[in-house]
Write a protein that binds this DNA or RNA. Sequence first.
DNA 1: TTGTAGGCGTTATCAT
DNA 2: ATGATAACGCCTACAA
Lengths: 342, 342
Amino acid sequence: MKRITIRDVSERAGVSTAAVSYVLNGREGKVSSETVAKVRKAVEDLNYIPDFSARSLANNKSKLIGVVIPQTEDRKQLLLQNPFYSELICGIEARLRQSGFHMILSGVEKGEGYLDTSMQRNLDGAIITGIYQESFYEDLKKVRMPIVLVDSYVYDSHFHVVGIDDELGGYLATRHFIENGHTNIALVTGLIRKDGVVEKRFLGYKRALKEAGLFYNPDHVFEHSVTYEYGQEAARLIATKYPEITAVFATSDLMAMGVMQGVRDEGKEVPEHISVIGFDDISVARMCTPPLTTIKQDAIAKGIMAAERLLAAIENPDAEHSENLMVMPLSLIERNTVRKLP
Amino acid sequence: MKRITIRDVSERAGVSTAAVSYVLNGREGKVSSETVAKVRKAVEDLNYIPDFSARSLANNKSKLIGVVIPQTEDRKQLLLQNPFYSELICGIEARLRQSGFHMILSGVEKGEGYLDTSMQRNLDGAIITGIYQESFYEDLKKVRMPIVLVDSYVYDSHFHVVGIDDELGGYLATRHFIENGHTNIALVTGLIRKDGVVEKRFLGYKRALKEAGLFYNPDHVFEHSVTYEYGQEAARLIATKYPEITAVFATSDLMAMGVMQGVRDEGKEVPEHISVIGFDDISVARMCTPPLTTIKQDAIAKGIMAAERLLAAIENPDAEHSENLMVMPLSLIERNTVRKLP
DNA sequence: TTGTAGGCGTTATCAT
DNA sequence: ATGATAACGCCTACAA
């Protein structure tokens, strides 16, 4: 069964391929309504479906968006196990599809770049989440498609950025502990990398401590790649070696939940013995017991926003780039994991 | 900045474009090792990156795989909020990338087909999860790319299938309750659809009841689309209207966790008042409190397997189709949500 | 072994 | 308003 081409349609409709192309692309000003009707009918009859590869070749528009998310270091798998990314992807995909774009979702090997993929596929744009080495971004700048960075503090006029005020989030969480009488507050966090979100959350944590006249103790910072298991581990360390700690600010809900489990593993209770605040407000945060107090951000909305910024930039390649930083709202959600100390 | 083409490479290397194409595609038998070296050098020097659109146009191979997962009915967003799908996707993407393929991830609108996408993008294959209407599959059969159905009981020689023995899963869970002395066992389940996985799990549930000489009570079946919230709702109903029920088999962990929360909302405890078994063993199942007894399947492995089957079918289009059903292992994981009745 | 040239499906530039 | 026709980048008979 051979493919139906634009030529088949043109013959059937008794017009030229150019005419068909015009009506297909909505340039209907250029063609008589009679021709439009004939073409539409032929398209319908033949069940014609355009070939995007050919289109891409002819006009460099692929209707394809590259989406990159971090992957686990060990198994090279997407970090989708962190629900935050799942939700982000949901938002991106939904918005993209709504505008007739498709999404190529992939991780990128450590040390590899994204230039190859972007050129091979003639991507119309890309959404990048996670933090990479300098050269990765330098590479990306060489390509002329619009790029949206999600959760990055790599400011550069080449990139659009969608994020939140991570420093504020860290500050709010820590201050909430302080307001509830806590003075020994641990930080359980993902790897603190330059220009990354956790670095800012860490900064907010320190600011709140300083503001309250509290001593910042580096021993109370537990840093590791973002996993549930390390949350458990950190709780264990805290219970056994740092009895003075009464509160834990985890820079992601995933770790916070690990901490909660770890606390219980040690025969203690949340929040009776240890208070916990997380970050993200992934959907399980309200499902766990006790429901987790956390810094809420709306990952789905973030994804939708990232997609929208990208689509706008694709529409209008040389628009004002001054307004290329979008900061989404965030708030502290009080649930049941923070105890008020007397 | 113009694109580097195969012609640029050929000129730089002082050979023909055909020669370049040959070494690029590994047909090195057709070309002298000297030429190979020259071409490689030129490719390197020029930083040549092939255009997959052009390739796809020329030989109908796109190195692109379509992956379809269900979406929420209301918001048209991917069902990634169910970690089971996240993990599945992780497996698929990792395996695909390893072989140089890219994945287009998308949902499909109710009533829409996937034929358009598959033709537009010249997909080399597709992995479909979820259950759709008859016509969806009929459509899919018209296209000649290999297709792997994950978790489907739509047997057809056109499709490869990767799944588990869902009926057995349902049976094992139910029997486990019975062995622990439970006789009034509710089923909290996603929509029971023909040829879907939950239908089989439901069948397994009934078989176990029957085998034990227990009465199957339709009132004890709580059916709804798969959400955490409905799990809560079902628990509420059970607590208030069906006090005789002592055990709940949920056909997905997501619902099981909702049930657990719902039970607590009613001031009762798991497993003291209500025992719970889930299905899937998503990663949070072991993280929740108490850790959830569940039917374990390895979603990541399932994804990898699905990708592998597809890749094999692409390699070898007219291979034996008799072995196109792959059943992955499954097992009951005992944790702490089932109480042994006296 | 190597090179030439035609074709893949579409868009865009010209004439008409 | 419409229709030839030349790109677009690559592959692959076929010819040399």
